[in-house]
Nucleic acid binder design. Structure first.
Ligand code: SF4
Ligand code: SF4
Lengths: 168, 168
DNA sequence: GACAATTTGGATAAGCAATGTCCGCATTGA
DNA sequence: TCAATGCGGACATTGCTTATCCAAATTGTC
């Protein structure tokens, strides 16, 4: 059991956009390049986020994606449920087969409670909390000489290089 | 994201054995028949439980499986980790790619905390708790005329209220 | 209005882990 | 010895996730 890559990619992408409050429309291409994933795939992820209301899309030329709500109203839980679904993690399959215990069963009740507690934690942290903490972190790491995030809003031109043999 | 069928099958099977404390060795065939699954598959599940110490196996003629520990020392968490693994649900893939934040990142920290809380709940409930609650449940449902579990040995013989008619 | 940029949705392939089965071997009690 | 049983490996099947491509729709700009 593991969170899908789509969930992690969505969070990182939203965080990328959240860290650049000045820009209003991000193209899939731009974000995909920053996250080092294919635009094809990220496009699908964004579509799901639009359907969920987390992103707003703007079609046509000069179009792109923007956050659909204030940062403080987008929690980690909101993003997770888009890709992981909201049906219970523990399905209680045996109930349909051999077991005649139902929702009253302590097994099912415990797993549901565990899942609820998990969601409770995720719902308490919004993207705003994350960027705020990242900002403090940035100040700390800057004092030690490492770059905490790809430089904000500084990416404009100067990307005519880069496509050569990357690895090895 | 969902718990694997193996996890649910394991729990139901262990519960089946736990409800019959007199029998000491259960063959795969017997349990598989009760759970209405193939013996082939259940055998694989049991092998993993043996490796984890939850079950003890007894090879050879008259062999079978028995619980490896007292009921009170087998928690739902113990069973879950056998099939779901213990690595974090949120892998933080972007960390390896583009993100330079690490374990200090609030995203990762929050998901880890959520998972920890979840495990905390699961670790608090043992098989003993489940069978005890099922016993109480049995008394309650018996008064209403339904069969809560395939009649184990621990049922009071005081009242024989129409246990005959099984479902069609 | 033509054009370019961009999202949308469908179709679909590739990859991978979970599911499910089979069979020969090892072990053990009778 | 023999039968019953678990063990472990190999394998087939299935379904979901990942990933790509393309035609269509939309929209700003010239
Ligand atoms: S035991 Fe509890 S969890 Fe397992 S099948 Fe019966 S009801 Fe569902
Ligand atoms: S943002 Fe946090 S979670 Fe996402 S990759 Fe960077 S460190 Fe891992």
């Amino acid at each position: 059991m593991r969170y899908s890559q789509s969930t992690e990619l969505a969070i990182d992408s939203l965080l990328y956009m959240a860290a650049r409050p000045e820009a209003s429309d991000f193209s899939v291409e731009q974000v995909a390049a920053a996250q080092e994933v294919s635009a094809s795939y990220l496009a699908k992820v964004f579509q799901q986020l639009v359907k969920a209301g987390v992103l707003r899309s703007h079609r046509g030329s000069k179009g792109g994606y923007a956050l659909g709500r204030p940062l403080s109203l987008i929690t980690l839980r909101d993003i997770a449920v888009v890709f992981e679904g909201s049906s219970p993690l523990y399905e209680c399959d045996g109930y349909a087969r051999t077991c005649s215990l139902g929702p009253k069963c302590l097994v099912k009740a415990t797993f549901d409670e565990a899942e609820r507690k998990m969601h409770e934690v995720l719902a308490k942290v919004s993207l705003q909390d994350v960027v705020a903490q990242a900002g403090q972190e940035a100040a700390w790491t800057a004092a030690h000489g490492c770059a905490p995030l790809p430089p904000p809003v500084a990416v404009t031109q100067a990307d005519s290089v880069g496509q050569g043999g990357a690895t090895s």
